[in-house]
Write a protein that binds this DNA or RNA. Structure first.
Length: 427
RNA sequence: GGGGAGAUACCAGAGCGGUCAAAUGGGACGGACUGUAAAUCCGUUGCUUCGGCUACGAAGGUUCGAAUCCUUCUCUCCCCA
């Protein structure tokens, strides 16, 4: 199966320039996707692009992952309704290094002719002067053409306006494509559907500047079945960096996928072939409560992002927290084992003396720890019946906790709602 | 440059001198149901030492009392030139 067919049956393909498929069928080609270093970690939203590059490489082509050291300094207006704040150079540099390290985990950089490569557009922009740029690049693209782009049009129609800097963005990205086409024989740029305009500016620039031919392909924007944004949880974005989103939380995020979404995600975020996926779906439809799809999905992605060992830990924690094992089970573990089990669960330490004296629920959960941001909120949630300590519902905000309740003389397991666990450690 | 409209909680949007911590809808969170699903129903949605405190673009003022009236400022939108 070729690359485009692969994306097609997986439901990832959004738009493709005529001739792209024919070109790829002729043999190994080079293509790239750009990643903007807007934060020091990628998040699950970037996984679609990562998977696209993986498929590209598996189909025998040569993938380039571009990190936008230069474009990141400008700010992509696509999909943004307001002007973006510029990042300072050192923050950008830091982000860039982090993102680059993450990307390294997903592609094969040592597979002969089609080894993946990493490039940074800052390398070819740092010595490019403004005058050279407007003469060599700007001259080939009309302002009329640039203004016709959706990303620009929306901002011109809107009320926030757009700076010259952001307006220029598409030229900068377009030049990336030209540069890679010229120097790396890169004939295809891929990206999310919001990147179509920017990518086409690149192919246009290649044509007008050198009469060359280059292609574009975009992937579907991932949305949940209910139309809300993908990749967000109560506590914000789901990051690939374990310091920001623990492997346990990461695993839980995927495990909690709804049935409707699981069927599309399993195609997009895993490499299982069509037969395997269809078989899993049949199994899932026959016994949906077993959540075959969610488990396979969560396992596959967690392993790809965090590795087998972290996945096993996440499973172990999940099985304990959501399984049948009573809280007494913890008594059989030593401190290290308990901490290990709760690895990835937010934890707070509270002085042991507080428990000797006895501490009431609100003070414990909102004062001495940060399970809740304020005492008012802790109270409300307790009164609404949404808080448990050691699997026992907290009845009133005045419930008192003493050393007697500490598991192993040290731990308290707090639940906010059904799914959010916290560990309080008395020290 | 001239004229007009507006700025309210996460968002949209009512309120136009006291009974307003502020209608309503959405979102978010919690509860019930369930499969750690969806749908549905219900509740919560400024902080608090529970005395109060801080809030309706910002700063002043009038008043016993202001989100509501006045002045200045900042920003946004619309029309004319």
């Amino acid at each position: 199966m070729n690359f485009v067919e692969e994306l097609r049956w997986r439901g990832m393909l959004h738009d493709i320039m005529p001739g792209t498929e024919e070109l790829l069928n002729k043999g190994m080609a080079s293509g790239y996707i750009g990643f903007d270093p807007t934060a020091d970690s990628l998040h699950v939203g970037h996984l679609t692009q990562i998977m696209t590059l993986i498929h590209f490489q598996r189909a025998g082509h040569k993938p380039y992952a571009l990190v936008g050291g230069a474009t990141g300094m400008v700010g992509d207006p696509s999909g943004k309704s307001a002007e973006r704040n510029l990042l300072s150079e050192d923050v950008l540099q830091h982000n860039l290094n982090c993102v680059r390290e993450q990307l390294k985990n997903f592609l094969d950089f040592n597979s002969g002719a089609n080894s993946a490569e990493m490039v940074n557009n800052y390398d070819w922009f740092k010595n490019f002067t403004f005058l050279d740029f407007i003469r060599d690049v700007g001259k080939h693209i009309t302002v009329n053409y640039m203004m016709a782009k959706d990303s620009v049009k929306k901002r011109l129609e809107g009320d926030t306006g757009m700076s010259f800097t952001e307006f220029t963005y598409q030229l900068v990205q377009g030049y990336d494509f030209y540069y890679l086409w010229k120097h790396k024989s890169c004939v295809l740029q891929m990206g999310g559907s919001d990147q179509w305009g920017n990518i086409v500016t690149g192919t246009e620039m290649i044509r007008r500047k050198e009469g060359g031919e280059a292609f574009a392909l975009t992937t579907q924007l991932i949305k949940k079945a209910d139309g809300t944004k993908f990749g967000k949880t109560e506590s914000g974005a789901v990051w690939l960096d374990p310091a920001r989103t623990s492997p346990y939380q990461f695993y839980q995020f995927w495990l909690n996928t709804t049935d409707a979404d699981a069927k599309s995600y399993i195609r997009i975020f895993t490499l299982f072939d069509r037969h395997t996926i269809e078989a899993m779906e049949a199994e899932h439809d026959a016994a949906p409560h077993l959540r075959v799809l969610q488990k396979a999905l969560a396992k596959d992605i967690t392993i790809r992002v965090h590795g087998e060992a972290e996945f096993l830990k996440a499973i172990k924690s999940s099985e304990f927290l959501f399984g049948n094992a009573g809280i007494e089970f913890l008594n059989e573990l030593n401190d290290g084992e308990v901490l290990d089990l709760f690895n990835g669960v937010p934890n707070f330490s509270v002085a042991k003396s507080e428990f000797k004296a006895g501490i009431n629920a609100t003070e414990l959960l909102a004062g001495k720890s940060a399970v809740f941001p304020s005492k008012g909120e802790a109270k409300k949630m307790i009164q609404g019946g949404g808080v448990s300590v050691n699997r026992v519902k907290v009845n009133t905000p005045e419930d008192v906790y003493t050393s007697a309740q500490l598991i192993n003389g040290k731990f308290l397991v707090v639940q906010k709602g059904k799914k959010n666990y916290f560990l309080i450690v008395a020290e």
